[in-house]
Amino acid sequence: MTAVRCIELCRTFIQGDQKITGLDHVTLEVEKGEFVCLVAPSGGGKTTLLNAIGGLDRPDSGEVWVAGKRIDQLSKGALAEMRLNNIGFVFQAYNLIPVLTARENVEFVMQVQGRPAKERRELAENVLAEVGLTGLEDRLPAKMSGGQQQRVAVARAIVTRPAMVLADEPTANLDSHTAEQLMELFVELNRTHKTTFIIATHDQRVMSYARRIVSLLDGRIVKDQQQAT
């Protein structure tokens, strides 16, 4: 079953007088349960593609299908609904809400989904334990290290067991040990829950966990290869 299908995606950005190509006729299909790495040098288009797949940004042309539904023409509200129920995001800059504690950050998505407080609390504590943050539930992001914040962001992304996790440079600010732990967690989720992972990275350690590597350059897919893990 196809989790994501991108057809002829184009996206350009204007910066001052310059026209920058983010995506140049990108066509990509990802099956459910795949573990894919998007690999590109800085400015290669991997984050732009990730944003288009996640409905965070709209392509100038082309089609984006997620879970059998075309999303590039959805309204903002419908896109938000789609993200809420289907996708977990892990951002390079963590993007935690600074005024909420680790537990509250993790609970936030479930709160928006309208889940009961008791269930939210239980699930949040379980997933925080899963990412190794037991005892830090009531800590604010500002009082946590970069690695701890990234693990809170991962916990927030996976707590609702979404069908797909989109991660943008998830290990960029982590030490090698923490990065390894995080990737093992991703692999475990992928194996046990058939969660689709699409990870934008240029970290070799991350690539070593992927079964498929899609390489981009200047907004184009230049290589798409399977690999043994």
Partner: peptide
């Protein structure tokens, strides 16, 4: 952030 997480 909250919009990206799915708040409409």
């Amino acid at each position: 952030i909250v919009l990206s997480l799915g708040l409409s």
